[in-house]
């Protein structure tokens, strides 16, 4: 599903949101619900970071256009109209990514796809915060997934075997 008009260049203040926005783009066709809530996370977080400077306001306004368009396109989807259903969708998707990467890790299969799955799981657990505070279990999953992604990435880069 195509989003609305493309976004302007990302202001430097929003650098921390670039991975969530890229995940949104990657899921436009694969899973528009994931795409929608990643953008919503970026929108909410961006407004907290800077909604006053002209370049940030312009960026957030375009991002809001995309969100409104997506909501219209997905109007009959329970995961969009009922946030409790949306929350379950994002949590299930994040845990599915996490479990895939964790199984690969435990089987000793280290590759780029599993690193990306760990990292994407951590980004989606960030996204889950649009619905409220994370549970202790999800906080632990997010911390572990982010650490694993970084650790295995560095091992592969340095030609070492992860432990």
């Amino acid at each position: 599903m195509a989003a609305a008009a493309p976004l302007p260049p990302l202001p430097p203040q929003f650098k921390s949101l670039q991975h969530h926005l890229r995940t949104a783009q990657e899921h436009d066709k694969r899973d528009p619900v994931v795409s929608y809530y990643c953008r919503l996370y970026a929108m909410q977080t961006g407004m907290k970071i800077d909604s006053k400077s002209p370049e940030c306001r312009k960026f957030l306004s375009k991002l809001m256009d995309q969100l409104e368009t997506l909501k219209k396109q997905l109007g009959d989807c329970d995961s969009i109209t009922q946030e409790i259903v949306g929350s379950a969708h994002i949590e299930n998707y994040a845990l599915k990514m996490f479990l895939y990467a964790d199984n690969e890790d435990r089987a000793g299969r280290f590759h780029k796809n599993m690193i990306k799955s760990f990292y994407t799981a951590s980004l989606l657990l960030d996204t889950l915060t649009v619905f409220g505070e994370l549970t202790e279990e999800n906080l632990q999953h997010r911390k572990y997934a982010r650490w694993k992604a970084t650790y295995i990435h560095n091992c592969l880069k340095n030609g070492e075997t992860p432990q």
Binding site: L40, M43, Q44, M47, S51, K52, P54, R57, L60, S61, M64, L67, E68, K71, E83
Partner: peptide, 27 residues
């Protein structure tokens, strides 16, 4: 002009907040 600029920014910020609230059916 400084206060006018601040006022415009504040109005646009409010507009974004309102659009976000509408998007999430919180109004």
């Amino acid at each position: 002009t400084g206060s006018v600029g601040t006022s415009v920014a504040s109005t646009e910020q409010d507009e974004l907040s309102q659009r976000l609230a509408r998007l999430r059916d919180q109004v």
